[in-house]
Write a protein that binds this DNA or RNA. Structure first.
Length: 752
DNA sequence: ACCTCAAACATTTTT
DNA sequence: TGTTTGAGGT
C-alpha cells in the first residue's frame, strides 16, 4: 500500500509531503481536508517517524476515531494505536491525569460537565446570599467560562480594573467573589470543568519547564484540524508545545468558523504567519464533494462576508439539479414536506436512509420533524440535545460511581446523598454545607468524620448519616478489588437505586429503569473489551463523550437529524436545511452586530456545503415557539443566494390564514383567534394521526389477551385505559409482576 | 422530611 | 410546549 500519494491532487500532495517546519493548509469546504490530514500522518509514518511522537488534535472524538481507522488500513494496527489522537479536551485530560501531582490534583479528578458546573454556580450564589435575579446562573457561568478561555483566572481578574469595572456597570459587583469561590470549590472537590482541562494544561506547561520540554520532545509532530475554531487558550498551549521543533501543521477554513461563542478566534489563522515566519501555506480550492450548483451558491453567499481570507472554491463536478426552496404554512407542514420529499427520493432513486440528513439551527426544532418522520415510518437518529449520559437516571447512577472514585466530588454528593430518600433532608445538608465551607472541606470529608464536628443534629439523623458513610466507604473498598461491572451492579443494588426505579411502574419509570440497565450493560462491554477494567477507568472520560461517540450498529442506516454545528466536518448526498426564517436562522440572539451576522452566514455556508447531490431549503410562515404560534418571515440568507440556482416552491396551501396575520398589529383579539384556530387544528391533527399511526395489532390488545414483551416475557392484559397516544395497558408478567406500559412504546406480540 | 400541584419560566450553537 | 420552582398539606 504505497500508492497513497497517487490519490491526491497537486496541492494536496505538496501539503502531504511537507514534513518539516510549520505548515498551514487553508482548505475550502469539500476540498479533501481530512484526506490531507490523514495521508500526511501516513506519510510521516512511512518516513519512519515514531507514532508516539505524533499528536493529532481533532474537533470531535468521532473524527479522531475515523481517522485512526483509515490510517490503520495503511500502516497496521500497532502503529496506528500509538498515535496520540483526539479532541483537545480528551488529550489534555489524559496528560493532566498523568501529571496531576504537579498541579496539586489527584489523578482521579472528576470532570464536571455543564450541568454540574451550573449547579455549583447556583449553590455559590445561594451561599453568598446574592440576589438570583441580578446574578443569573447562566450568565455567571458563561462569564467564568469566557474568562477561562482567555486565560484569565480569578487572580488575574482581580488585577484587572477593566474587567471589574465591566461587572460594576452591570451591577454584578460580587462576580469576582463568585469566580474565586467557584475555583476554590472545584479545587476542594478535586474537580475540573471543561475549561479547566485547557487552563490547567497551560498552567502545567508554564510552571514546570521540565514537563514542557518532556512534551515538546514527545510531540515532535503536531497536527490540528479545524484550526479556525481554536480559542485563545488552545492557541497558547499549541504555541508552547510546538515552540521547540515547529513541526506544526494546521488545517482550517476561515469561512467555516462557527464557534466564536465559545471563544474561537479566527485571528489564530492570521497569527500563524507572525508566529512562524518561515511557514509554508497551501490552499485547497477544488471541491470534490458537491455539484457545481451547490458550490456556486455557497461561493455567492460567503462573498457577502467582509472578513475573510480570499479564495475561490471551484469544482469539476457536474452542474446538478437546482436547489429547492420551499415555503410552507407551519412548522408541522414543513416537517411533513421534508418527510414526504425524503421518502419519495429514497424510493425513486433507491437510496439508503443514511444518505439523508436534516439540519436545523436549534435543537428544539427537531420535534415536528421527528413527528413527521415517525408518521411515515422513516427511521432516524438524533445527535445532540440530551445525550444518554446526561439523562437524569443515568447521571444519578454515575454520581454514585463518581463519588466512589472521588468522594470529594461535592456535586455528585449533593445529587445522591438523599436519593433515593434516606432521611437526610435539605436542612441537614445545609448545616453540613455551612461547616464544610467554614473549614474548607468537602461535604464528604465532613460527613465521613461527622463526630469531629459540632453540628446540631439529632440522634436519628446522625445515625442515617453514619449509615450513608458506611455504604460509601464500602463502595470505595470494593472498588479496589472488583471490575467495573461487578462494583457497578453492587452500587446499583446497595444504593437502593435499582429497587427505587424498579418499583416505579409508570411508563416513564420503566424507561428510566431500562436506561439504568443500559448503563450497566455498557459497564459489561467495557469490562470485556479493556484490560484495565476498573470503574475508575470507566468513568474517566465519560463527561467528554457525546452520542456521536457511542453510536450503535443498529443506528447505521438511519436519517440523521442534528444542528448545523454538529454537522461540521460531515457530508451527505441529500441535505435538508429547515427553519430558514429571520430570528431563527439567523438567530435572534445574533442581534444587529455585523460580526454575529457574519458568523450566522458562515454557519449557513457550512450547512449548504454539507450537500453532495441535492440541497433542500425550507421555511414556514408560522412556527410554534415558547408555547405560542409565532409569525415568521423568510431568512435574509435565502435572498443572498443566486436566484438562477434556485427552484422556489410554495407549499403554503391555506393562504386564507395569512389574511389574519397581516392585520395582527392593529388588533390583538385577531391574534388570539388566529392562535386558537391553529391550536385546534394542531390538536385535531395530532389525535387523528395517532389513530392512523396505531398498528392494527394494538387495537386487538384488550383485557384478558396473553401477550409477549421482549424484556418481560409472557404476560396477561389486566386493564386498558386512555386512547390514542396515551393508551396504557396494565399487564401481569409471569415472575415479574404487574406493569403499566404505553402501547405507543411497548413492543407487545399477541400470543392468544 | 417528603409529596403534590400549580405557577413561573425558558430557548442558540458545544467540548 | 415541557421543565423547574415554590407553597402548602401530610
Amino acid at each position: 500500500m504505497n500508492n497513497y500519494l497517487e490519490q491526491l491532487n497537486k496541492e494536496q500532495t505538496k501539503a502531504v509531503r511537507h514534513i518539516d517546519g510549520p505548515l498551514m493548509v487553508i482548505a475550502g469546504a469539500g476540498s479533501g481536508k481530512t484526506r490531507v490530514l490523514t495521508y500526511r500522518i501516513i506519510h510521516l509514518l512511512k518516513n519512519k517517524i515514531n507514532p508516539y511522537n505524533i499528536l493529532a488534535l481533532t474537533f470531535t472524538n468521532k473524527a479522531a476515531k475515523e481517522m485512526r481507522r483509515r490510517i490503520e488500513n495503511f500502516v497496521g494496527i500497532s502503529l496506528a494505536n500509538n498515535l496520540w489522537m483526539g479532541t483537545f479536551h480528551s488529550v489534555f485530560a489524559r496528560i493532566l491525569r498523568f501529571e496531576a501531582d504537579k498541579i496539586n490534583y489527584p489523578s482521579n479528578f472528576t470532570i464536571y460537565d455543564t450541568e454540574d458546573s451550573k449547579n455549583l454556580v447556583k449553590s455559590i450564589i445561594k451561599d453568598l446570599n446574592l440576589d438570583k435575579e441580578t446574578y443569573k446562573v447562566g450568565i455567571i457561568r458563561n462569564r467564568i467560562s469566557a474568562l477561562k478561555n482567555n486565560f484569565i483566572t480569578s487572580e488575574t481578574y482581580h488585577k484587572s480594573n477593566d474587567l471589574m469595572q465591566a461587572d460594576i456597570i452591570s451591577k454584578r459587583t460580587e462576580f469576582g467573589k463568585i469566580y474565586q469561590t467557584y475555583e476554590n470549590r472545584c479545587k476542594k472537590s478535586s474537580a475540573m470543568d471543561f475549561d479547566d482541562l485547557l487552563l490547567k494544561t497551560y498552567e502545567l506547561l508554564s510552571i514546570h519547564a521540565d514537563t514542557l520540554i518532556k512534551y515538546q520532545e514527545k510531540f515532535k509532530y503536531i497536527l490540528i484540524d479545524e484550526y479556525q475554531d481554536t480559542n485563545q487558550i488552545q492557541y497558547l498551549i499549541i504555541k508552547k508545545l510546538a515552540a521547540l521543533y515547529e513541526n506544526i501543521c494546521v488545517v482550517g477554513d476561515d469561512a467555516q468558523s462557527i464557534y466564536s461563542f465559545r471563544g474561537a478566534n479566527i485571528q489564530n489563522i492570521l497569527n500563524f504567519k507572525l508566529d512562524y515566519p518561515d511557514y509554508k501555506t497551501y490552499k485547497l480550492e477544488q471541491n470534490y464533494r458537491s455539484t457545481a450548483t451547490i458550490v456556486e451558491a455557497a461561493n455567492g453567499l460567503i462573498k457577502k462576508n467582509e472578513k475573510q481570507i480570499r479564495k475561490e472554491v471551484w469544482t469539476h463536478n457536474k452542474q446538478g439539479e437546482k436547489i429547492i426552496v420551499a415555503q410552507t404554512n407551519s412548522d408541522n407542514d414543513e416537517g411533513r414536506l421534508v418527510a414526504n420529499t425524503l421518502f419519495d427520493i429514497k424510493m425513486n432513486n433507491d437510496e439508503l436512509y443514511k444518505d439523508f440528513t436534516i439540519l436545523y439551527r436549534t435543537n428544539a426544532q427537531s420535534r415536528p420533524l421527528e413527528e413527521a418522520l415517525r408518521r411515515k415510518n422513516i427511521p432516524y437518529k438524533i445527535y445532540g440535545g440530551l445525550s444518554f449520559y446526561q439523562r437524569k437516571e443515568v447521571k444519578d447512577l454515575l454520581a454514585y460511581f463518581r463519588l466512589t472514585v472521588n468522594p470529594n466530588d461535592d456535586e455528585s454528593f449533593k445529587r445522591i446523598v438523599n436519593y433515593p430518600a434516606r432521611g437526610i433532608g435539605a436542612t441537614t445538608i445545609q448545616k453540613i454545607n455551612i461547616v464544610a465551607n467554614e473549614s474548607n472541606k468537602s461535604l464528604w470529608e465532613v460527613v465521613n468524620s461527622i463526630e469531629n464536628y459540632n453540628i446540631n443534629l439529632n440522634k436519628g439523623t446522625l445515625n442515617k448519616i453514619s449509615n450513608f458513610s458506611l455504604m460509601i466507604n464500602d463502595f470505595i473498598i470494593q472498588n479496589n478489588q472488583k471490575n467495573a461491572y461487578d462494583i457497578g451492579e453492587e452500587i446499583a443494588n446497595k444504593s437502593g437505586l435499582f429497587h427505587h426505579l424498579y418499583n416505579d411502574k409508570t411508563p416513564e419509570g420503566i424507561s428510566r429503569f431500562e436506561n439504568m440497565q443500559e448503563l450497566l450493560n455498557g459497564l459489561k462491554d467495557f469490562c470485556e473489551n479493556n484490560e484495565n477494567n476498573n470503574l475508575t477507568n470507566f468513568i474517566q472520560d465519560i463527561a467528554l463523550l457525546t452520542d456521536q461517540d457511542n453510536e450503535k450498529d443498529t443506528d447505521f442506516n438511519k436519517v440523521t437529524l442534528m444542528t448545523v454545528h454538529a454537522a461540521k466536518g460531515l457530508e451527505f448526498p441529500y441535505v435538508f436545511v429547515v427553519g430558514l426564517e429571520e430570528n431563527l436562522f439567523p438567530s435572534m440572539m445574533s442581534g444587529e452586530s455585523q460580526e454575529d451576522m457574519e458568523e450566522e452566514r458562515r454557519l449557513f455556508y457550512v450547512a449548504i456545503t454539507r450537500a453532495e447531490k441535492r440541497l433542500f431549503l425550507s421555511y414556514a410562515n408560522t412556527r410554534f415557539r415558547w408555547g405560542q404560534f409565532i409569525d415568521c418571515r423568510e431568512s435574509r440568507f435565502l435572498n443572498e443566494l443566486d436566484e438562477n440556482l434556485l427552484d422556489k416552491k410554495d407549499f403554503n396551501i391555506q393562504k386564507k390564514y395569512n389574511i389574519y396575520t397581516k392585520t395582527k398589529k392593529q388588533n390583538s383579539t385577531y391574534k388570539n383567534t388566529t392562535q386558537n384556530i391553529f391550536k385546534n387544528r394542531r390538536l385535531k391533527k395530532l389525535s387523528s394521526t395517532n389513530h392512523q399511526n396505531h398498528n392494527q395489532s394494538n387495537e386487538k390488545i384488550v383485557n384478558g389477551v396473553i401477550v409477549k414483551h421482549a424484556k418481560f416475557g409472557k404476560g396477561k392484559i389486566l386493564n386498558i385505559e386512555g386512547d390514542g397516544a396515551n393508551k396504557k395497558a396494565t399487564v401481569f408478567f409471569e415472575g415479574i409482576g404487574q406493569k403499566q406500559l404505553l402501547l405507543k412504546f411497548a413492543k407487545l406480540d399477541i400470543i392468544s
